[in-house]
Amino acid sequence: MRKRYFGRTALFIITAAFALLFLTPTVLTITNSFMTQSEIAANYGMIFDMTRPGVGTYVADSVNLKLMPDIITVDQYATVLFRSPEYIGMIWNSIILVVPIVVFQVGIASFAAYSFTRYRGKFKNFLFFFYIVLMLMPYQVTIVPNFLVADWLGILGSRWAVLFPGIFAPFSVFLLTKFMRRIPTALIEAAKLDGANEWQIFVKVCIPQCRSALYSIAILVFIDYWNMVELPLILLDSRDAQPMSVFLSTINAEEAGIAFAVAVVYMIPPLLLFLHGEEALVEGITHSGSVKG
């Protein structure tokens, strides 16, 4: 008994420590968003001098992680929300890019998954295997073909250059296919016997059964594309069309304070989405075959 108690306590401490470690960047972002620009430059200015030596002179000669601001101010939020509409414009750019990607990717993936599940063709397995290979490829491999195709289609520099690769991603297809294969065949046969056509089977039988998977895919895709940087950075040449994730990846010393406030605002939508679909996400990941249960 004592052993189990001791073991549990130790495990709790270890996990708590790891949790604190993982939470530290988020907590730092939130607390530092209430710092003044001068305080941020004093504490973190040396980071930017390391990347561009000799550019500036900073008060502190080493980076200082501060959890508590010396003076709590909302000036950064005021700048982001009230004085500089370009930051809000970048958030809108993110929404404009991510929402269609999520909606259409989920929709097209559901169609593709239904096809992979229901139809037995000669090259189905080969095609599915091809999808898996594509899914496993890192984005660094596919970015150049994406660029070339976008240029060939004449959409390079426009939002379509980012939307198309996002909409037609293979990961959702793979996940949804795995989930749809778990739908009992009896349900589909029963629906057929009731006179349902393929579309009705798809809409009225498969989609409701895959709701949790659809939720989880939507959430995962949203989070994935909400944080995308490379695609818009390479495929969008206009700074006005780039999402906030690109700005957050290219901040300089003068924008560090604003970046903290922007990051806090920027993390709200995925946070809300996660809170909304937490159970569905867990259920979807579980029943997609990742965890047996």
């Binding site: 929300l81 009230f82 004085r83 500089s84 509409p85 809000i88 414009g89 958030i91 809108w92 929404i95 709200i268 939508p269 809300l272 989405l273 809170l275 909304h276």
Partner: peptide, 20 residues
């Protein structure tokens, strides 16, 4: 609650866009 918060967030974002 999450849905309402998301809707409010979008509305506030739109308002702030105009206001800023």
């Amino acid at each position: 609650w999450a849905i309402y918060a998301g809707i409010i967030f979008v509305i506030v974002l739109a308002l702030l866009t105009i206001l800023s």
